[in-house]
Amino acid sequence: MKPVPFAHSRPAKLTEISSALDADNAKLIAGGQSLGPMLNLRLARPSTLIGLSHLTELRSVRLDGATLFIGAGVTHAQIEDGDSDVDLPPMLRHVARNIAYRAVRNKGTLGGSLAHADPAADWVTAMTVLDAVLVIANGREKKRREPMSGFMEGAYRTKLQPGEIIVGVEISAAMGEAHWGYEKICRKVGEFADAIGAIVIHPGLQYARVVAGATEGPPILLNDIARAIARTAKRPALEEIDAALAAHLPGADRVKRQLLKTALSRAIAKVIP
């Protein structure tokens, strides 16, 4: 399990990355916690790896008015530890704490996880339920913004274009006071999720989102369920969740639906005990 030969570059500035990405079959590497194994299994066979972990501009965590910006190069461990000048929403710290193992969290990055778009990973679901917006640069034009819901097109597929890089995510700073529930079901501590249920409610902002994650595709927004919860402040019946899941995931078998239903109902129960 050794990678194919590849060149390695470390552009000095973010703006140089796009030209580096022009090289044939070049690939970005940040923490390398997903790409590393794929390289070793020779599933990824880049000619050049462009290292990002030294770029301080990707590591910034700051408040821009009412918007919290978290750089793509921030590690899971930094979020877990709250290692920033700005307070992070408690939900983010909770999610980070339960990603894989500490050794993975020390290296793995938020942006890397979002770009990799593994359906069973945490950030794609957590950022969807928080209505995060991705800030994306391609080096030549102005940065563009892409809402997290819709960014992921399928398993390991996103709306990132060739030459583009995720710079960071923007989240409404008010999410720090939101009510939230996040339930992950997995075989063992640190394992990828078999099901994720996530809910965020912010009455002041009239914000309510319910998301099913680890669905083998993009996270699913269950808007009818979210609206009903916002309207009634009551937990939906299990049958309603099941019906919503069945409508969105006609291919899912009974066990998968059971796990998603359980994750969702337990997440919701954290907001509405």
Binding site: R187, K188, V189, E191
Partner: peptide, 9 residues
């Protein structure tokens, strides 16, 4: 990731 071993937890 596919062959699941028990861990300390």
């Amino acid at each position: 990731a596919d062959y699941i071993l028990p861990g300390p937890a």
